[in-house]
Amino acid sequence: MSGASILVLEDSPRTGVENMQIDQQLLLTADPWEFVSCKPSDKIKPSILVRFYYWSEPTLSLGNFQSIKELEHAEDTFGHPELASIPWVQRKTGGGAILHDQEVTYSIVIPSDDSGVALSGKGHSEKLYRAVHESVVAGLVDLGLDASLSEACTCSVAGGKEKDKEPFLCFHRRTPVDVVVGNHKVLGSAQRRVKTGLLQHGSFLVSKSPYYPTLLGVGDLAQFPPAYRGFQARGSQDACRNWQDWLEGRIFQAIWGLIGSTKEIIRLNLRDSSVRIP
């Protein structure tokens, strides 16, 4: 995959609906894409796209098959009416609901014609889940955290009644490749595979949210040395931004592990009027 390039799409805060629409558009146009921009060149044809979300307000995103009605009855959200007070949006990927507050959300889109990530099959790409999550685990361990893959499962039994008993919130569920620090899940990802490509997005918990304070993030789970104090700033945008930069590096490491080195990393800002999604 020599000559491959990564496009990082930067942005500013959007509503949940807008964020989901952008991901869906990026996935359906991954044929592959041809972005038009005045800078750095007129036409950009990235091999892989990485995007970070910016949320205009705390938002709940529901898995593709979840209903907002489950919020009132599920064991882990029953008695948390504050969750019902924030906007929600339906994702096109699977898994449980995510509270997007004090966290970093990323997405990776890979066109189907890319041969580097074995996208020819049906359903999930274990390879991509594992690459990103193992890279994050390695990075957290370097920071001194007790991080690992979950290796546990609260998975549903196919088509059976057990699927209704799964926790409503993604961070209460476990799949073997989820990233945990101690017993706390801090990164979960989900995918959507269509004919044009594969979308993986995930949520990395930075610190606890007032809307559900028992879910802890990495900033709550460790004391960082002075050089990393910016990672500890709970409840601030700065901490999320610092962790986003860190997570971007881990995602690049994962991509390089899958396809080898890339030719270039290009950055475009979706708010730049010269940038048009195909």
């Binding site: 898995g63 096109k92 699977g94 359903g123 999930h124 790409s125 998975c155 989900a190 959507r192 595979r193």
Partner: peptide
């Protein structure tokens, strides 16, 4: 269809 948190 959904499996392993992936929708296809």
């Amino acid at each position: 269809v959904e499996s392993v948190k992936a929708v296809s």
